[in-house]
């Protein structure tokens, strides 16, 4: 008997037994009882639209928590979507992912919506324009995955709004590009470049105040 074969069989058997052997039905099942409420806590720095059974339930402001009554039986679905800010032409300036929370089973469900609650991690750049010029945020993830063309102008001394901030997808090569509208200058902030302190120029903030918001450390344009 070749014992090497025995060792090789172990991971194969483990893999085989973990393949689901119960055929699931596409028809949903729920408990025959009245559901009481659902609570949403929005940790993002942007309002989100809440849906119940594909109909808008409410718009929840940035960094707020609210409880909604249900008081009925059945297959109750909830979902949420980011409401991105618009530019002067009415175009969206950030991504608006739609997240389906599925059938609710808990009698009193609670959902915390953070930058990791969507299918991919989100971030919002925290930009402070300390120049005397107008600076435009014009690309996020330039020439990388999830490239997003923005057209958001920051006036002198203006900073990113923390009540209605645009969100983008965070990846290993994320970057932020800005240009100066009053003189020929481009500013690039990237996860690959480091500051003198050894930390990346573009990184998510670990500030407790903004926990779960996905805001970056301050990007100071000067």
């Amino acid at each position: 008997m070749n014992y090497r074969l025995f060792y090789n069989l172990i991971p194969i058997i483990l893999l085989l037994v973990n393949i689901s052997c119960v055929q699931e039905s596409p028809i949903p099942v729920a408990f025959d009882q009245e559901l009481e409420s659902v609570t949403f806590e929005n940790q993002l720095l942007t309002p989100i639209i809440l849906y119940r059974d594909n109909v808008v339930l409410d718009t929840l402001s940035a960094r707020t928590k609210r409880k909604y009554a249900i008081n009925r039986k059945g297959f109750i679905h909830h979902a949420w979507r980011i409401l991105a800010p618009r530019d002067g032409l009415g175009r969206i300036t950030g991504v608006e992912p739609y997240v389906d929370l599925g059938v609710q089973y808990e009698i009193n469900a609670e959902h915390t919506i953070s930058n990791t609650s969507a299918d991919r991690t989100l971030f919002t750049p925290r930009i402070a324009n300390l120049t005397f010029d107008r600076v435009r945020l014009f690309y996020i993830n330039y020439r990388e995955q999830d490239e997003f063309l923005v057209n958001k102008v920051f006036d002198p001394s203006e900073s990113t709004s923390i009540d209605h901030a645009p969100y983008y997808y965070w990846n290993s090569s994320s970057n932020v590009y800005l240009d100066n509208l009053d003189r020929p200058r481009i500013y690039e902030f990237s996860r690959d470049d480091t500051l003198f302190s050894g930390k990346p120029e573009l990184d998510l903030s670990d500030d407790f105040e903004y926990q779960g918001s996905g805001i970056t450390n301050a990007i100071i344009v000067q």
């Binding site: 973990n18 689901s20 052997c21 119960v22 055929q23 699931e24 039905s25 596409p26 028809i27 949903p28 099942v29 729920a30 408990f31 599925g102 059938v103 089973y105 808990e106």
Partner: peptide, 30 residues
Amino acid sequence: LANRVTGSSVVDTASLEREEATGSFVNNDP
């Protein structure tokens, strides 16, 4: 990893006849 429930339910209020129904809990929450 997976689940499947087969039970019986009344599909028509005019009839008390029970009919077989099969479904699944759509996530692990329950």
